[in-house]
Amino acid sequence: MKLKNLNIAFFVTTGVSIVVFIYLVFLGYDEIETPKDVIKIIASIVFPIPMLFFMRFIVIEHFLPENTDEYKLKNQKPATLFLVVTIAGGILMMQFLEFLTQKKLEDALVIAHLINSTTISSYVMNFLLYNNLKANGILSGVLMALAIHVFFLSA
């Protein structure tokens, strides 16, 4: 069962990374001027992978209980709280940073890639392997904040 999970996790993580990569490259096509930018973008996509392997290496077991109803019930509230807090915190922080540097996030495409690929990889990994609901809340919060920011708040 665990082996099957591991199997799915690797495939899904790789698949999602590739899709996001292609999508973002198309999205920021204008900003890619030299092959140097391509190298930077590839590097920021690859960034989470060694870290995930290291994490997986350390946390080889389910260090948390199985995904039972009881466990879900117990963690509902803190997980939702984490989600809301991270969304608010993420948006505020990005607004603050944009205000501070007087630059849009879209100008620093690499940073967006970095946050995105790191969060998505850890999200999928966490979702399929460890089922840590609190971590799930935080990671969902980061992704939501990024999406809201890019979609609504940066004109």
Binding site: I39, K40, A43, S44, V46, F47, P50, M51, F53, F54, V110, L114
Partner: peptide, 12 residues
């Protein structure tokens, strides 16, 4: 892991 991340951080 450190070697891999170091190279990537430099590249980014």
């Amino acid at each position: 892991t450190g070697i891999a991340e170091g190279i990537i951080v430099y590249m980014i």
